[in-house]
Computed example of a mutant assay.
Amino acid sequence: MAGAREPLRRVGMFGGAFDPPHGAHRALAEAALEQLQLDRLHVLPTGHAWHKSRTLLPAHHRIAMCERAFGDLPRVRIDPRETEREGPSYTADTLSELSTEYPGAELFLILGADQLLAFKTWVRWQDVLSHATLAVANRPTSIGPQALLGEAPETDLSSVDIPFVRLNMPLQHLSATAVRARLAGGAADGPPLDVLVPGAVASYISQHHLYQTPT
């Protein structure tokens, strides 16, 4: 049919708490778009995080920060669907929906090395593999509050026995845990906020006085 759009052939899913989205998240999205030659990348803030013991910041704040962190990147869509589901939100369900929305497309799940090591604890992880190729960026072995010190070596993935492709990017000594600790005063000597997170995210955090107490 004249004027019909070409179907999207390579689609990525980048999920996470994004509590808050930080510089390493942005770098990972940029690497995925370029190296996987994605036609579209869905950035999906987590809804009810079944695997996290702490309470996440309300979804509307995390969505707003994602819009500021990733919204200017080409071919990115901030996708709130997981925050709108009732009950726990599972990656397998989202990938099933995306496979229906993009028939015939090759799907990629973007994740960090720490998530890859825990992958077999995910609900219906076999279904995830049936829908998508795992695209993995390595991370330091320590991503807690001390991550900003930048002293931890990269994670050893040599024992992983599931298929994945590597995303080539510099090791990012940054984590949301470290950023929250910095904002709560647990790392007062650390870098300024606008170095840790995109500038528009830093402004949003300051405007709404987020992360002022330890989480």
Rank of each mutant, 00 (worst) to 15 (best):
Arg75Met: 04
Leu36Glu: 01
Pro214Tyr: 06
Pro163Leu: 09
Pro163Ile: 06
Ala200Gln: 12
His60Gln: 14
Ala32Glu: 01
Ala184Cys: 13
Met65Val: 02
Leu196Lys: 02
Arg81Pro: 02
Ala69Gln: 05
Gly150Ser: 12
Gly15Leu: 01
Gly23Pro: 01
Val43Ile: 15
Val165Phe: 10
Arg75Trp: 04
Pro153Met: 14
Leu116Met: 05
Met13Gly: 02
Ser142Val: 14
Ala137Gly: 09
Thr133Val: 13
Leu210Ala: 06
Pro103Trp: 04
Pro80Arg: 12
Gly190Trp: 15
Lys120Ala: 05
Arg77Leu: 12
Gly47His: 00
Ala113Glu: 06
Asp72Trp: 08
Val195Asn: 05
Ala200Lys: 14
Thr94Phe: 00
Leu33Ala: 06
Phe164Pro: 00
Thr46Asp: 01
Leu107Ile: 06
Gly199Met: 09
Gln207His: 11
Ser130Phe: 07
Arg180Asp: 03
Arg9Tyr: 01
Ala200Tyr: 07
Leu210Cys: 07
Arg10Lys: 12
Val43Ala: 11
Pro80Leu: 02
Gln115Met: 13
Pro7Cys: 00
Glu67Pro: 09
Arg10His: 10
His48Gly: 01
Thr91Gln: 05
Ala176Thr: 01
His173Asp: 03
His22Tyr: 02
Ser89Pro: 07
Leu44Trp: 01
Met13Cys: 09
Ala135His: 08
Ala4Trp: 11
Ile162His: 00
Arg26Ala: 09
Asp127Tyr: 08
Gln37Gly: 09
Val11Lys: 01
Gly16Arg: 04
Leu111Pro: 00
Ala113Val: 05
Ile143His: 03
Met169Phe: 05
Val179Trp: 00
Glu106Met: 04
Leu98Glu: 06
Glu154Gln: 14
Glu97Met: 08
Thr213Arg: 15
Leu73Ala: 08
Ala2Tyr: 14
Ala105Trp: 10
Asn168Lys: 15
Arg124Ala: 05
Ala105Phe: 05
Leu174Tyr: 03
Phe14Ile: 04
Pro80Met: 11
Gln172Arg: 14
Arg182Lys: 13
Thr100His: 11
Arg75His: 12
Ser159Thr: 12
Leu44Met: 15
Gly15Pro: 01
Glu34Gly: 04
Glu84Arg: 15
Ser96Gly: 14
Arg68Cys: 06
Ser158Tyr: 03
Leu129Met: 12
Ile63Leu: 15
His51Thr: 03
Val128Ala: 07
Ala187Ser: 11
Phe70Val: 02
Val76Arg: 13
Ala137Thr: 04
